[in-house]
Design a protein around this nucleic acid. Structure first.
Lengths: 251, 251
DNA sequence: GGGAGAAACTTACTTGAGTTATTGAACTGC
DNA sequence: GCAGTTCAATAACTCAAGTAAGTTTCTCCC
C-alpha cells in the first residue's frame, strides 16, 4: 500500500528549508538555524498508514514534519480509537513521547510523510545551549495543547454538524497558513473512518452528516481536494471565533 | 460566598514546602529550590468559584497550585462549557496561558485555593539560567497534555458509565499520590454540573448515571468525601490500564 | 427556626447518534 | 478481465443521551 517516493534523498539544508520561508513561521537567527542543522539527522520517510511512533514506545525521537500529514491517536483495549489531533508540515512530532518515559499515544502517517529527525538524546543539549530554542519547544508544546483543548471542547459540547464545521475550518486555516490553499481548496486526505475517529462519532453518523453538509453547500470534494465554499459560515456554524494564527517557531 | 482563610500569611519557604516532601514529587537540588524560592512572589489566594485566569487574559502569571482544586475550561458563545482538566496541588497553573500571547481558556478555582506565583516575566530567565528547571517545565506541560489526551479519548469514545469510571479512577490516583486518600476515601468537591461539563454529558444524564453507579456499589459519598469501593473494578470499567504515576517535578 | 437559593435527584418524553447490514463505486493485484 | 479490497452511501431499527419541568434536600443567613 505504500511507496516512500524519495527514500535516500539527501536532507535539505535547514538554512535553505523551503518550509522556513512560509509566513506561518517566525524568523530565526542564523546561529539558531545552524544549531538545528548540526543537530538533525537525515530525513526519515514513513509510508501512509504506518506508525511513526508506536503506542508505548520508550525511545521515540523528536521530529519536525517536513511534508505530508499525520495524526496522534489513542486506542482502547476493545479497538475503539480516538484521533487526538492532526499534524501538518512544520509541526513538531513526538514532543510528548520524547519527553515522557513512554508514549501514551501513537502517531500515524496519514499520507506518505517526510520527517526531520531531532534525536531525543540531544534535546537536553538544546536546553543547555540554546535556551531560546528550548523556550520555543515549550511554546510549541503549549500550542499543541491548545489545539487539543479545542478538539476536546468540540467532542464534548458540539453536535455532529458543528464538530465537522469546527474540524474543517481549523484544518483549512492551518493549511492556508502553509500556503496549501488555492482558491478555497486544499488536499484533504482523510477517510470517513478517520474523520469519525477524530470527531468521536460513529462511521455511519459521520457519513450521513458529512453528506448533508456537502449537499447543503458548505463544501465540495473532488479528486481528493476539498473546497470550503463559505469559510465564514463554516466558522460561524462551529461558533468558533476568528483568532489569527500567529507565526510560530520552526525547529 | 467565599472566605480566603489565610490572606496575608507569609509564603511558606520553598525549602520547607510541605508539598515537596510528598512521594509524588522528585527530589531537587538545593540550588534549584533556592532559585525557585528567590523567583516566586507571595502566595495568592483565590476563592472557590472565581477565575484564576480569565479566558483571553494576556498577562497571565504562572502558578503552582499549593492547596485546593481548580479546573481549566473553555466556553462557547452560547454558554456551553467544557471542563478540560482538573488541577490538584503541585500542578502548574497557567503554563499555556503564560507562554502563549493570550489565554485560549479560563482557569477557575473549584475550592478556595492557594497559589505560589512565578511571574511570567521571569520564565525566560529560568530558561537561560536553569535549563534543568526549564526542561521540567516542558516535561510538566507534556504531562498535562497527556491528561487531556486521556480526557479527549474518554469524551470521544467512552459511554457515560465508562466516562465516570475513568474520571473517578484518575482523580483517585492523583489524590492518592498526594497522600489525600485515606481508606479509599478522599475529599470530592465537584458539583454535578461540573461533573457534567467535564464529561461532556447533560446534567440529567450525568445525575442518572452517577446515581446508578453509586447504587451499584462502585462508590459512596458522604460529607463531601467520596469512597471508591472497588478501584480495580473502576479501572476495568474504564478500560484504563494501570500506569504507575512516576514522581514529577515541583516548581 | 424559617425563608431563599443552590444543588441533587426524579419523571416523562423526544431525538440525535449508534448498530447492523446491503449495495455500489473505485482501485488493486493476478 | 475477474476476484478481492477498501471506501462511501443509505436504509431500518434500537437505544443512549438530551430536554423540559418539576420535587426534594441541603445550607446558610437573617
Amino acid at each position: 500500500m505504500m511507496k516512500p517516493d524519495h527514500r535516500g534523498q539527501p536532507a535539505v539544508p535547514c538554512l535553505a528549508c523551503p518550509l522556513r520561508m512560509k509566513p506561518a513561521f517566525k524568523d530565526k537567527s542564523d546561529e539558531e538555524v545552524r544549531f538545528i542543522q548540526a543537530t538533525k539527522l537525515e530525513h526519515r520517510f514513513v509510508a501512509a498508514g504506518t506508525d511513526i511512533i508506536h503506542p508505548g514506545q520508550e525511545d521515540a525521537e523528536l521530529y519536525t514534519l517536513f511534508s505530508g500529514w499525520a495524526f496522534r491517536y489513542k486506542s482502547l483495549a476493545d479497538g475503539r480509537r480516538q484521533i487526538l489531533n492532526f499534524l501538518l508540515p512544520g509541526d513538531l512530532v513526538g514532543l510528548q513521547a520524547s519527553l515522557l518515559s513512554a508514549s501514551a499515544h501513537g502517531i500515524e502517517a496519514l499520507t506518505d510523510v517526510e520527517l526531520c529527525t531531532f534525536p531525543r538524546k540531544r534535546i537536553w543539549d538544546l536546553f543547555v545551549k540554546m535556551p531560546a530554542l528550548a523556550y520555543e519547544v515549550a511554546w510549541l508544546g503549549s500550542r499543541e495543547e491548545s489545539l487539543i483543548d479545542e478538539n476536546l471542547t468540540s467532542v464534548g459540547q458540539r453536535n455532529a454538524s458543528e464538530r465537522i464545521a469546527a474540524l474543517l475550518i481549523s484544518l483549512y486555516r492551518r493549511a492556508d497558513a502553509l500556503g496549501l490553499v488555492n482558491d478555497h481548496s486544499f488536499q484533504f486526505p482523510l477517510t470517513q473512518q478517520q474523520l469519525a475517529d477524530a470527531l468521536g462519532l460513529s462511521l455511519v453518523h459521520t457519513s450521513k452528516t458529512w453528506a448533508r453538509l456537502r449537499r447543503a453547500g458548505l463544501f465540495a470534494m473532488s479528486g481528493g481536494r476539498l473546497t470550503l465554499l463559505n469559510p465564514r459560515l463554516t466558522a460561524r456554524m462551529a461558533s468558533l471565533f476568528d483568532r489569527e494564527l500567529e507565526p510560530r517557531p520552526l525547529l
